[in-house]
Amino acid sequence: MKCDIVLAGVGGQGILSIATVLGFAALENNLYLKQAETHGMSQRGGAVQSYLRLSDRPVYSDLIPFGKADLILSVEPMESLRYLPYLSAEGYVVTNITPFMNILNYPEIELVMDEIKRLPRFVAIDAEAIAKEIGNSKTSNMVMLGAATPFIDIALQSIEHGIREIFGRKGEEMVSLNLRALHAGREFALANR
């Protein structure tokens, strides 16, 4: 098993919560893991990424080589395109479709979506809408993680367990909300891959 993931977003969108859940699941499955994060200046609304590498063999580099990522998981559509050089020939892009427009020269969203639709393998998902349906827009990152689960070779139960551990201290209601978000995202991806 080997899964190299580029997690992408904008500083403040909380992509690390996705990494934390996956990290927990990986550890539970005795997988080797390395996860490089962006701290510091870029956290202030800049482009941020995390390289998450899971494997049943030792992982050496903290960075993913170009053309080797199995998955780009982006919580923002334009950011999903920024890391395309990392995507392998067989890799998937799973991206949220809600733009985060904190720059003046943000391209036309239709053009961004056209680029995404040109990719051979992608899932484009409205994570905010699904999260709202579930009842809490803050769960959109778990919707995104759910949408990525069909492409990550880790048992779903382990990821659910990760959510229980991470959100447990926020109460049972938050756990079940986030679990619902995870499943909703997963179902969408399975139907729209």
Binding site: G45, G46, A47, P65, K68, M78, E79, Y86, A89
Partner: peptide, 29 residues
């Protein structure tokens, strides 16, 4: 990074996509 080392050792790197030109810089703010 691993790609820099691959190049220095004349190893074959995986082929990869380019960043579409429409992608704008997103500096911190």
């Amino acid at each position: 990074n691993p790609d820099i080392i691959a190049k220095a050792l004349h190893l074959k790197s995986a082929s990869c996509n380019a960043i579409p030109p429409l992608v704008a810089n997103r500096p911190p703010a």
